[in-house]
Design a protein around this nucleic acid. Sequence first.
DNA 1: ATAAAATATTCCTTGACTGGAATATTCACA
DNA 2: TGTGAATATTCCAGTCAAGGAATATTTTAT
Lengths: 116, 116
Amino acid sequence: MEYIQIMNTTTLTALAEPNRLRIVELLREKPYSVGEIASRLKLRQPQVSKHLRVLSEAGLVEVRPAAQQRIYQLQAAPFEELDNWLNSFKALWESRYGALDEVLEELKKKRRKEAP
Amino acid sequence: MEYIQIMNTTTLTALAEPNRLRIVELLREKPYSVGEIASRLKLRQPQVSKHLRVLSEAGLVEVRPAAQQRIYQLQAAPFEELDNWLNSFKALWESRYGALDEVLEELKKKRRKEAP
DNA sequence: ATAAAATATTCCTTGACTGGAATATTCACA
DNA sequence: TGTGAATATTCCAGTCAAGGAATATTTTAT
Protein backbone atom coordinates (compact mmCIF):
# COMPACT_ATOMS: atom_id res chain seq x y z
CA MET A 1 0.00 0.00 0.00
CA GLU A 2 1.51 3.25 -1.12
CA TYR A 3 1.15 6.56 0.54
CA ILE A 4 0.75 9.55 -1.69
CA GLN A 5 1.12 13.02 -0.28
CA ILE A 6 -1.71 15.20 -1.47
CA MET A 7 -1.78 18.96 -1.17
CA ASN A 8 -4.84 21.15 -0.94
CA THR A 9 -5.01 24.27 -3.02
CA THR A 10 -6.24 26.69 -0.39
CA THR A 11 -2.80 27.30 1.02
CA LEU A 12 -1.33 27.70 -2.44
CA THR A 13 -4.11 29.97 -3.61
CA ALA A 14 -3.66 32.20 -0.60
CA LEU A 15 0.06 32.47 -1.25
CA ALA A 16 -0.26 32.95 -4.99
CA GLU A 17 -1.48 36.52 -4.78
CA PRO A 18 1.46 38.95 -4.92
CA ASN A 19 0.43 41.30 -2.16
CA ARG A 20 -0.62 38.45 0.07
CA LEU A 21 2.76 36.88 -0.46
CA ARG A 22 4.40 40.13 0.54
CA ILE A 23 2.33 40.22 3.69
CA VAL A 24 3.36 36.69 4.56
CA GLU A 25 6.98 37.51 3.96
CA LEU A 26 6.69 40.52 6.19
CA LEU A 27 5.02 38.56 8.97
CA ARG A 28 7.80 36.03 8.82
CA GLU A 29 9.89 38.65 10.57
CA LYS A 30 7.45 39.13 13.43
CA PRO A 31 3.74 39.75 14.05
CA TYR A 32 2.39 43.09 12.89
CA SER A 33 -0.81 45.07 13.18
CA VAL A 34 -2.94 45.85 10.16
CA GLY A 35 -1.83 49.44 10.07
CA GLU A 36 1.82 48.55 10.27
CA ILE A 37 1.46 46.09 7.43
CA ALA A 38 -0.33 48.68 5.34
CA SER A 39 2.27 51.36 5.86
CA ARG A 40 5.28 49.10 5.43
CA LEU A 41 3.98 47.60 2.22
CA LYS A 42 2.38 50.82 1.02
CA LEU A 43 -1.01 49.26 0.65
CA ARG A 44 -4.38 50.68 1.58
CA GLN A 45 -5.79 49.49 4.83
CA PRO A 46 -8.98 47.93 3.43
CA GLN A 47 -7.05 45.79 0.99
CA VAL A 48 -4.75 44.65 3.75
CA SER A 49 -7.74 43.67 5.87
CA LYS A 50 -9.20 41.78 2.95
CA HIS A 51 -5.98 39.93 2.25
CA LEU A 52 -5.60 39.10 5.90
CA ARG A 53 -9.05 37.64 5.88
CA VAL A 54 -8.12 35.29 3.07
CA LEU A 55 -4.91 34.35 4.85
CA SER A 56 -6.86 33.82 8.03
CA GLU A 57 -9.45 31.59 6.41
CA ALA A 58 -6.64 29.57 4.91
CA GLY A 59 -5.19 29.15 8.38
CA LEU A 60 -1.98 30.92 7.50
CA VAL A 61 -2.37 33.64 10.10
CA GLU A 62 -4.13 34.23 13.35
CA VAL A 63 -5.33 37.41 15.00
CA ARG A 64 -5.03 38.71 18.51
CA PRO A 65 -6.63 41.90 19.65
CA ALA A 66 -4.48 44.47 21.41
CA ALA A 67 -6.57 47.51 22.24
CA GLN A 68 -8.21 48.56 19.01
CA GLN A 69 -5.43 47.00 17.01
CA ARG A 70 -5.31 43.50 15.60
CA ILE A 71 -1.98 41.76 15.64
CA TYR A 72 -1.56 39.18 12.93
CA GLN A 73 0.78 36.28 13.34
CA LEU A 74 1.82 33.47 11.05
CA GLN A 75 0.66 29.96 11.85
CA ALA A 76 3.01 27.06 11.41
CA ALA A 77 0.67 24.30 10.29
CA PRO A 78 0.10 25.21 6.62
CA PHE A 79 3.79 25.83 6.07
CA GLU A 80 4.58 22.53 7.63
CA GLU A 81 2.10 20.80 5.37
CA LEU A 82 3.55 22.46 2.33
CA ASP A 83 7.00 21.43 3.42
CA ASN A 84 5.92 17.83 3.87
CA TRP A 85 4.34 17.84 0.48
CA LEU A 86 7.52 19.18 -1.07
CA ASN A 87 9.43 16.36 0.51
CA SER A 88 7.65 13.97 -1.79
CA PHE A 89 9.37 15.77 -4.65
CA LYS A 90 12.84 15.65 -3.17
CA ALA A 91 13.71 12.73 -5.40
CA LEU A 92 13.58 15.18 -8.27
CA TRP A 93 16.75 16.92 -7.31
CA GLU A 94 18.34 14.65 -4.76
CA SER A 95 18.57 11.53 -6.84
CA ARG A 96 18.86 11.28 -10.58
CA TYR A 97 15.20 10.87 -11.49
CA GLY A 98 15.93 8.95 -14.65
CA ALA A 99 12.36 7.86 -15.19
CA LEU A 100 12.13 9.57 -18.53
CA ASP A 101 14.79 7.33 -19.98
CA GLU A 102 12.86 4.32 -18.81
CA VAL A 103 9.75 5.53 -20.55
CA LEU A 104 11.63 6.12 -23.76
CA GLU A 105 13.11 2.65 -23.51
CA GLU A 106 9.67 1.20 -23.07
CA LEU A 107 8.40 3.03 -26.11
CA LYS A 108 11.22 1.71 -28.26
CA LYS A 109 10.55 -1.83 -27.13
CA LYS A 110 6.88 -1.50 -27.81
CA ARG A 111 7.41 -0.22 -31.30
CA ARG A 112 9.94 -2.92 -32.06
CA LYS A 113 7.37 -5.43 -30.93
CA GLU A 114 4.49 -3.99 -32.91
CA ALA A 115 6.36 -3.52 -36.18
CA PRO A 116 9.46 -5.69 -36.33
CA MET B 1 23.29 42.97 5.89
CA GLU B 2 20.38 40.63 6.06
CA TYR B 3 19.31 38.16 3.45
CA ILE B 4 15.62 37.79 2.88
CA GLN B 5 14.31 34.91 0.84
CA ILE B 6 11.76 36.15 -1.65
CA MET B 7 9.43 33.93 -3.61
CA ASN B 8 7.93 34.68 -6.99
CA THR B 9 4.28 34.01 -7.55
CA THR B 10 4.49 32.23 -10.89
CA THR B 11 5.33 28.89 -9.34
CA LEU B 12 2.63 29.28 -6.73
CA THR B 13 0.04 30.41 -9.25
CA ALA B 14 0.77 27.44 -11.44
CA LEU B 15 0.35 25.06 -8.53
CA ALA B 16 -2.71 26.76 -7.11
CA GLU B 17 -5.06 25.49 -9.78
CA PRO B 18 -6.64 22.18 -8.68
CA ASN B 19 -6.30 20.28 -11.93
CA ARG B 20 -2.81 21.54 -12.46
CA LEU B 21 -1.89 20.38 -8.99
CA ARG B 22 -3.29 16.96 -9.82
CA ILE B 23 -1.18 16.84 -12.94
CA VAL B 24 1.91 17.70 -10.98
CA GLU B 25 1.15 15.07 -8.41
CA LEU B 26 0.69 12.52 -11.14
CA LEU B 27 3.95 13.44 -12.84
CA ARG B 28 5.74 13.04 -9.55
CA GLU B 29 5.35 9.33 -10.12
CA LYS B 30 6.95 9.38 -13.55
CA PRO B 31 6.74 11.25 -16.86
CA TYR B 32 3.52 10.84 -18.82
CA SER B 33 2.18 11.77 -22.20
CA VAL B 34 -0.69 14.21 -22.63
CA GLY B 35 -3.14 11.47 -23.43
CA GLU B 36 -2.15 9.40 -20.44
CA ILE B 37 -2.55 12.36 -18.15
CA ALA B 38 -5.96 13.11 -19.62
CA SER B 39 -7.26 9.58 -19.21
CA ARG B 40 -5.83 9.01 -15.75
CA LEU B 41 -7.22 12.26 -14.40
CA LYS B 42 -10.40 12.10 -16.47
CA LEU B 43 -9.80 15.46 -18.05
CA ARG B 44 -10.33 16.52 -21.63
CA GLN B 45 -7.23 16.60 -23.74
CA PRO B 46 -7.37 20.31 -24.67
CA GLN B 47 -7.55 21.36 -21.04
CA VAL B 48 -4.62 19.14 -20.22
CA SER B 49 -2.59 20.71 -23.00
CA LYS B 50 -3.50 24.14 -21.73
CA HIS B 51 -2.55 23.34 -18.18
CA LEU B 52 0.69 21.82 -19.33
CA ARG B 53 1.47 24.99 -21.17
CA VAL B 54 1.09 26.99 -17.99
CA LEU B 55 3.23 24.53 -16.09
CA SER B 56 5.77 24.64 -18.86
CA GLU B 57 5.95 28.41 -18.90
CA ALA B 58 6.40 28.35 -15.15
CA GLY B 59 9.31 25.98 -15.63
CA LEU B 60 7.67 23.21 -13.68
CA VAL B 61 7.68 20.71 -16.52
CA GLU B 62 9.53 20.04 -19.72
CA VAL B 63 8.48 18.28 -22.89
CA ARG B 64 10.15 15.73 -25.05
CA PRO B 65 8.68 14.45 -28.26
CA ALA B 66 8.33 10.72 -28.77
CA ALA B 67 6.72 10.01 -32.11
CA GLN B 68 3.56 12.09 -32.18
CA GLN B 69 3.37 12.01 -28.43
CA ARG B 70 4.74 14.56 -26.02
CA ILE B 71 6.16 13.26 -22.79
CA TYR B 72 5.99 15.72 -19.92
CA GLN B 73 8.41 15.56 -17.05
CA LEU B 74 8.74 17.53 -13.85
CA GLN B 75 11.63 19.91 -13.46
CA ALA B 76 13.43 20.17 -10.16
CA ALA B 77 14.35 23.85 -10.03
CA PRO B 78 11.04 25.45 -9.04
CA PHE B 79 10.43 22.86 -6.36
CA GLU B 80 13.88 23.45 -5.01
CA GLU B 81 13.23 27.17 -4.90
CA LEU B 82 9.98 26.67 -3.11
CA ASP B 83 11.68 24.41 -0.64
CA ASN B 84 14.38 26.97 0.03
CA TRP B 85 11.78 29.62 0.55
CA LEU B 86 9.96 27.43 3.02
CA ASN B 87 13.14 26.98 4.96
CA SER B 88 12.96 30.62 5.92
CA PHE B 89 9.76 29.76 7.76
CA LYS B 90 11.14 26.79 9.62
CA ALA B 91 11.55 28.89 12.73
CA LEU B 92 7.78 28.93 12.91
CA TRP B 93 7.51 25.35 13.95
CA GLU B 94 11.01 24.38 14.92
CA SER B 95 11.58 26.96 17.61
CA ARG B 96 9.03 28.65 19.80
CA TYR B 97 8.44 31.81 17.77
CA GLY B 98 7.52 33.92 20.77
CA ALA B 99 7.68 37.20 18.95
CA LEU B 100 4.05 37.97 19.65
CA ASP B 101 4.67 38.23 23.34
CA GLU B 102 7.44 40.70 22.72
CA VAL B 103 5.14 42.86 20.67
CA LEU B 104 2.52 42.82 23.37
CA GLU B 105 5.14 43.77 25.95
CA GLU B 106 6.22 46.67 23.81
CA LEU B 107 2.66 47.87 23.49
CA LYS B 108 2.15 47.85 27.23
CA LYS B 109 5.31 49.82 27.80
CA LYS B 110 4.34 52.36 25.20
CA ARG B 111 0.92 52.93 26.71
CA ARG B 112 2.31 53.19 30.18
CA LYS B 113 4.64 55.84 28.88
CA GLU B 114 2.00 57.83 27.01
CA ALA B 115 -0.61 57.84 29.74
CA PRO B 116 0.93 57.14 33.13
C1' DA C 1 -0.36 11.82 -51.05
C1' DT C 2 -3.70 10.52 -47.75
C1' DA C 3 -5.54 9.04 -43.51
C1' DA C 4 -5.28 8.50 -38.69
C1' DA C 5 -3.42 9.47 -34.10
C1' DA C 6 -1.82 12.71 -30.74
C1' DT C 7 -1.49 17.20 -29.37
C1' DA C 8 -2.00 22.30 -29.62
C1' DT C 9 -4.65 26.44 -30.43
C1' DT C 10 -8.52 29.51 -30.88
C1' DC C 11 -12.89 31.56 -29.73
C1' DC C 12 -16.42 32.15 -26.61
C1' DT C 13 -18.75 32.52 -22.24
C1' DT C 14 -18.84 32.56 -17.41
C1' DG C 15 -17.30 32.88 -12.70
C1' DA C 16 -14.03 34.62 -9.49
C1' DC C 17 -10.85 37.84 -7.69
C1' DT C 18 -8.78 42.37 -6.96
C1' DG C 19 -8.53 47.24 -6.07
C1' DG C 20 -10.95 51.62 -5.17
C1' DA C 21 -14.06 54.28 -2.56
C1' DA C 22 -17.28 54.81 0.85
C1' DT C 23 -19.20 53.21 4.99
C1' DA C 24 -19.79 50.36 9.10
C1' DT C 25 -17.95 48.47 13.29
C1' DT C 26 -15.24 48.15 17.42
C1' DC C 27 -12.73 49.83 21.22
C1' DA C 28 -10.51 53.03 24.45
C1' DC C 29 -10.95 57.04 26.85
C1' DA C 30 -12.18 61.81 28.02
C1' DT D 1 -22.12 59.36 26.07
C1' DG D 2 -19.54 60.85 22.45
C1' DT D 3 -15.31 61.18 19.84
C1' DG D 4 -11.31 59.54 17.52
C1' DA D 5 -8.34 55.65 16.16
C1' DA D 6 -7.95 51.19 14.13
C1' DT D 7 -9.97 47.80 11.53
C1' DA D 8 -13.65 45.40 8.85
C1' DT D 9 -17.21 45.26 5.38
C1' DT D 10 -19.84 46.41 1.35
C1' DC D 11 -20.62 47.73 -3.31
C1' DC D 12 -18.92 48.43 -7.76
C1' DA D 13 -16.12 47.97 -11.96
C1' DG D 14 -12.54 45.93 -14.46
C1' DT D 15 -9.63 41.97 -15.35
C1' DC D 16 -8.18 37.45 -15.74
C1' DA D 17 -8.36 32.63 -15.96
C1' DA D 18 -10.76 28.17 -16.76
C1' DG D 19 -13.76 25.00 -19.27
C1' DG D 20 -16.33 23.69 -23.57
C1' DA D 21 -16.42 23.02 -28.34
C1' DA D 22 -14.51 23.25 -32.63
C1' DT D 23 -10.52 23.39 -35.37
C1' DA D 24 -5.61 23.50 -36.58
C1' DT D 25 -1.14 21.32 -36.46
C1' DT D 26 2.17 17.71 -36.39
C1' DT D 27 3.81 13.17 -37.00
C1' DT D 28 3.46 8.44 -38.45
C1' DA D 29 2.29 4.87 -41.55
C1' DT D 30 0.01 2.97 -45.54
